[in-house]
Design a protein around this nucleic acid. Structure first.
Lengths: 147, 147
DNA sequence: CTTGACCTTCCCATGATGGGAAGCCCTATT
DNA sequence: AATAGGGCTTCCCATCATGGGAAGGTCAAG
């Protein structure tokens, strides 16, 4: 199997397969006489593993750890679970961060007329004129209506 | 005000202030005889605007748009609202994507013993052996399809 | 006049991926 | 056989926003 076929079979682009080899994530592929990389089912399986880990948001570094654990038949499942748990925590942190942005922005957008007139609470907030609800949408009072 | 003071006053690192100038996000600062950049309140205000926009997750490109709208006294608030609304949609898309990952991972982590034994549903999933709970959580790919 | 804290520009690195050029190799069609 | 095409190789560059650090100029205080 050439790199193109391995790419199709694994869903990983040829560019990335070469890159993963370069950074040592996968072991260098064997070469044919014409210097083409050649792959077998085992290699494609590894590439699909990486693809799946990436699609779950694991970094290449985490993916490498998981890959090694996968290949280590005497691993302890707790080691895998630790990696996953840490990643979940990181995802949740980032989700919360973005949800905070959405909350603030939704509030500001709600307060913005979105019409032909120039006055805009969104710009006011960005400019620091937090007469609207600067710094994280004050939960209690300040239901300011402006149009 | 030198760049260091402007940095402290705005919360934007000196490195980033120079970079913003380089890419044309802010107008080049005036220079003193010794070639030092010099800043006034207006410039610091702009930097704080950028800082705030960045903290709400706007890209530098979006920030530039917002900055121009801010400085355009005859803007229509709808233009601002459009930028914000698009950004909210993008954030929500990314949040949903990450929540999908968390959902899958939480399920897998829940199923994983996390003990000294090697068998691990997390690795099984990554390896494609989705004998774990009949792949109801993630039908092979928590990626969001865009078209 | 030295020391240290600024400032300047310039280059490099990150993470993960894509784009593209130059050149070699193989196969199929003329 | 010659040529066209597609696939492979390596190498360099770009992204996005930020930081690190070197080499050297400048200024104020001791």
């Amino acid at each position: 199997m050439n790199i193109g076929e391995a790419s199709t079979a694994s869903g990983v682009s040829a560019k990335m397969i070469r890159y993963y080899e370069e950074i040592g994530l996968v072991t260098p592929a064997a070469r044919t006489g014409n210097n083409y990389r050649v792959y077998g089912e085992a290699e494609v399986h590894v590439l699909r593993f990486i693809k799946r880990a990436r699609s779950l948001g694991f970094s290449l570094e985490e993916t490498e750890t998981l890959l090694k654990l996968w290949q280590d038949k005497s691993r302890e499942s707790s080691a895998v679970k630790d990696v996953a748990t840490a990643h979940i925590a990181d995802l949740e942190r980032r989700i919360a961060e973005m949800q905070g942005m959405v909350k603030t922005l939704s509030h500001l957008a709600h307060c913005c007329g979105g019409n032909h007139r120039p006055d805009c609470p969104i710009l006011d907030d960005l400019a620091g004129d937090s007469s609207v609800a600067g710094e994280s949408v004050s939960p209690s009072g300040s239901e300011i209506q402006m149009t």
